[in-house]
Design a protein around this nucleic acid. Sequence first.
DNA 1: GATGAAAAAATTTGCGG
DNA 2: CCGCAAATTTTTTCATC
Lengths: 162, 162
Amino acid sequence: MDHQNEVQEVAQQQRIDNLDRNLLNALQQDARTPYAELAKRFEVSPATVHVRVEKLKQAGIITGTQVLLAPRPLGYQICCFIGINLKAAGDYPAVLAKLEALPEVIEAYYTTGHYSIFIKIMCRNIDALHRLLVDQIQSIEQIQSTETLLSLSQPIARQIQP
Amino acid sequence: MDHQNEVQEVAQQQRIDNLDRNLLNALQQDARTPYAELAKRFEVSPATVHVRVEKLKQAGIITGTQVLLAPRPLGYQICCFIGINLKAAGDYPAVLAKLEALPEVIEAYYTTGHYSIFIKIMCRNIDALHRLLVDQIQSIEQIQSTETLLSLSQPIARQIQP
DNA sequence: GATGAAAAAATTTGCGG
DNA sequence: CCGCAAATTTTTTCATC
């Protein structure tokens, strides 16, 4: 609404001090850590923690919080990546719209290199993957070819270091 | 570390009712939504919300919470994937250990298909990526070849549907 | 900016349906 | 398994440094 917001969205690299970095690191481990505990840990007052976290939100550095769900107990056994090549570069928006409609597509990247679009899939089992691939993905007319990388395990999973 | 998780994850598909699913969906959007608000939204008492969330944690379905950080304002401009081929399959643990030591490697997958190991990288700029690739990754002796996919944008980013 | 203390809100527990 | 209500903790505000 006012122009100050636009300026913030340009969001260049911000000044972040040590306390900010500590808070971000802690909240990356557990977004519900009580501010009182963070205050004790980093030897400031709970009010300061509160103010800093608010500022980090305002600055667009903290964009939200989420619970992490284990795929296995929810019945998701398969994680895979699919590299997609398009018939024409201009088909990108149309294909993306179709991928967005598939809940199993949890990430999509527009990439340079071997593929035009690169997606991450989570689905229940091999059968579901097979059907998804054949019925939903390879049947998209603008797709020329796909290549599947099946993930057998994910030994590293972490976030960027603030 | 990974193998202990696997044992727990043998945890087959759990009984999840509609309330559980609603709570998981809401907490995926915002892990700090007050239980009182969730209670109102789903027409149960706050205590019930609390009990359900605790059970979902006990069951290993909720594995944690985290804040989401915007890479850009923290100075991370580059996201890319690197497919790695090893000289010998047995080199996997040694290479993984070296990758784990690089903070820019935020995800690693053991995959079938074109590559042996597939990693996701976040780093500050092209120069940093160049140095990382040449000095830290391609110099790992057990690595035979790498292939880089640079991400230009990420139009889809979401989680699995409980 | 940071703080301590007060006010407001949310979490957590135990008892009774 | 649920909900009520009390007890405890946390979050949030604000005047002051």
